[in-house]
């Protein structure tokens, strides 16, 4: 890596200050920390969970709560290491959740839903259905069947990029181009459909 810009120095210093203030009991600083990281934490929890898992918000909240307690106690003082600590907490929490399910002999997210309180969320369900519909449109619009298969394998069957490229006989750059275009197009379709809540948070 040769090109590094220090355009984020101010936020680094700010984060350092936020951590220090939290350790002194500053509740406003706690709010600032949560505002800064909660969206990223949720996105990564989603990333590490199975698709559509209902436990995402619980895990994200647990991670943020645990980290906040740790900062309050003065256990995390270095802003340089804070993001890595937070990321580790996310990975551990999601791993622990699925390990727990395996130990209980559960294999599907729906099993966990049994033990959770009722969390009916019609708007989120509606968004999910609309997103699925938009994805069908996107897939249907792809002119090349091979690209449709590529997207299906990558997002539905979750094959690795390498496996897909080898088995379908396509180059890395073609793979990236197809997937990248799909993301761009999908985002546009969601915007057209008025679905601005990509993560259920940013309506």
């Amino acid at each position: 890596m040769t090109t590094v810009e220090n355009r984020d120095d101010s936020s680094t210093e700010s984060l350092q200050g936020v951590l220090e203030r939290i350790a002194t009991g500053d509740r406003a600083a706690e709010a600032a920390l949560l505002t800064r990281f909660q969206r990223g934490v949720r996105a990564l929890v989603v990333r590490h969970c199975r698709p559509g898992d209902v436990v995402v918000d619980d895990i994200a909240q647990d991670v943020l709560s645990a980290v906040l307690v740790r900062v309050r106690e003065g256990g995390i003082r270095d802003a340089q290491t804070f993001p890595a600590y937070l990321q580790t907490m996310i990975v551990r929490a999601t791993t622990a959740e699925y390990r727990k399910r395996r130990a209980r002999g559960e294999s599907l997210p729906i099993d966990v839903a049994d033990g959770l309180p009722d969390r009916s969320d019609p708007p989120a369900d509606l968004d999910s259905q609309r997103m699925a519909a938009q994805l069908r449109n996107l897939i249907a619009d792809l002119p090349v069947a091979r690209d449709r298969a590529l997207l299906s394998r990558f997002y539905l069957e979750e094959h690795s990029k390498e496996d897909i490229c080898v088995s379908m006989g396509i180059a890395d750059d073609h793979f990236h181009r197809v997937v990248h275009r799909a993301r761009v197009r999908f985002r546009a379709l969601l915007a057209q459909a008025g679905i601005v809540s990509l993560a259920g948070r940013d309506k």
Binding site: Q134, A149, L156, R183, F186
Partner: peptide
């Protein structure tokens, strides 16, 4: 951008099967 990709993955599972047979 990660959220878009997450949404794409979730939608793929919600809409499965995506491509039952190629129409072209």
């Amino acid at each position: 951008q990660v959220e878009v990709d997450n949404a794409l993955r979730d939608a793929a599972h919600a809409a499965a099967p995506l491509s039952v047979a190629p129409d072209r």
